[in-house]
Design a protein around this nucleic acid. Structure first.
Length: 390
RNA sequence: GGAGGGAUGCCGGAGCGGCCAAUCGGAGCAGACUGUAAAUCUGCCGCCCUAAGGGCUACGCAAGUUCGAAUCUUGCUCCCUCCA
């Protein structure tokens, strides 16, 4: 692994600004990685992704193993060349698929037996294979194979998954030969603070170049997530990058950075975009709503993305209703640009020592959809009362 | 001129005596989505009442039959197909 994989440049309370050194360049942190499971950020070209301000993205070992196959990509010169992306790449091990595809998966200490969601064929993934595959893909950062618990799992079950994750982490470490890749461990422990602590302490002793927090944002209430993030992050070595896996709603990025997280990835911004939900500084907005059908302004007049600089909300509304493919792309561009700008603003605020103010301002201005809907409904209700003369 | 068939909620289209405010699509109105099996999924969708629930008006129009009609009978209006 590279020397000085991570440089911590500045802190502002718990928030940290730094940079990741990878074979494909330096990447500033706090960092958000768009998700490109199948070697593509859906609807975008690599050039688009770069243009939106991203230097690193995430791809998925399980998906690429099933299709087109690890060997195919290796023979074609590795993942960077295959997908024509010259920035950094982090590959997930397939551990998350053990969780999300659990009906198709059986786990033993040896590894995970999968049934392909594509053709039903059976496959076996071990910690050693996960490392080997990721080395073949040639990602800059690779992840240990872990077992992610579901929200609501019993403590006993979570503990067993965590202990297995620890054993698998050691096996991954032993199997990892490549010098060009940083292998990150993944802290598990579900919603149990004592297990989280045990996991962080255990893995920290193994001295990985980076540490991820996994198994959160799996359906638990938000009030549960952030205290666990805060507690776990505090137990991780300060000189190593901390990666909160699968978190990426704007409000969660700010909250995560405030608790000492350096790296995020999430399918949410891109997936939600494809379903018509767009981020603005005021909160999330559903572009399909009737209110936008005649709006001649961009969805966010302050946004510098090509979608907002070019098209009206009414046009986007029309594209979504007409199920035109351009809608997916324009919305993805907007949401990723929003996230990219947010991360840049966060980093600048940390470097300026004003992150606390920034976070407070952002969170007070950014209403979640639920809050927004609640406010609107209350306004309608009040208006109705006024009209009926009450 | 003759012979058939049909008129159902915003639209298409089921239902063919009570379990029908009416299956199912679509449109419309909202919501969800967090290491992507996702261009996916969920709810609402005659009117009124705060919810459980209740009330009202409804299946072209009118008059009947019946305890009870979107469903049966008769007349009327309009539409479609075929033969002249």
């Amino acid at each position: 692994m590279p020397q000085n994989h991570f440089n911590l440049l500045k802190t502002c309370h718990n928030a940290r600004a730094g940079e990741l050194n990878t074979p494909h360049g330096k990447v500033p942190t706090p960092l958000f990685m768009p998700v490109g499971s199948q070697a593509t950020v859906k609807t975008l070209t690599p050039e688009d992704v770069k243009g939106l301000g991203f230097n690193m993205l995430l791809a998925n070992t399980y998906h690429l193993y099933l299709r087109p196959g690890i060997d195919v990509i290796k023979k074609l010169g590795g993942l960077h060349k295959f997908m024509v992306w010259d920035g950094a790449i982090l590959t997930d091990s397939g551990g998350y698929q053990v969780f999300s595809l659990s009906p198709l998966c059986k786990i033993t200490d040896d590894g995970a037996t999968f049934r392909s969601h594509i053709d039903g064929s059976e496959h076996f993934l071990t910690p050693e294979l996960a490392v080997k595959y990721q080395e073949s893909l040639g990602a800059d950062v690779i992840m240990v194979l872990d077992e992610c618990s579901a929200y609501g799992d019993s403590k006993d079950k979570v503990r067993k998954a965590m202990e297995r994750t620890h054993r698998w982490a050691e096996r991954c470490l032993k199997a990892h030969k490549s010098k060009n890749q940083a292998l990150y461990a993944i802290v598990q422990g579900g919603m149990f603070p004592d297990l989280r602590q045990a996991s962080a302490e255990y893995l920290t002793k193994l001295d990985f170049p980076g540490y991820a927090i996994g198994g959160l944002s799996v359906g638990e209430p938000k009030e549960v997530t952030m205290p666990l993030v805060e507690q776990t992050a505090a137990l991780l070595p300060p000189d190593k990058p901390r990666y909160l896996m699968g978190v990426g709603a704007p409000e969660d990025l700010v909250a995560g950075v405030a608790r000492g997280i350096d790296i995020f990835d999430c399918a949410l911004p891109t997936r939600v975009a494809r379903n018509g939900a767009l981020f603005t500084r005021q909160g999330r907005v559903n572009i399909r709503r009737a209110t936008y059908s005649k709006m001649d302004k961009p969805i966010d007049p302050t946004c510098d993305c090509s979608t907002c600089r070019t098209f009206s909300a009414a046009y986007l509304n029309h594209l979504f209703r007409a199920e035109e493919l351009l809608a997916l792309r324009l919305a993805t561009i907007h949401n990723l640009r929003f996230i990219s700008n947010l991360m840049k603003d966060i980093r600048n605020a940390i470097l300026d020592g004003t992150f606390d103010v920034f976070a407070k301002d952002f969170l007070s201005g950014y209403k979640t959809t639920n809050e927004q809907t609640r406010v609107e409904q209350k306004e309608k209700w009040l208006k109705g009362r006024e009209n009926s003369g009450i």
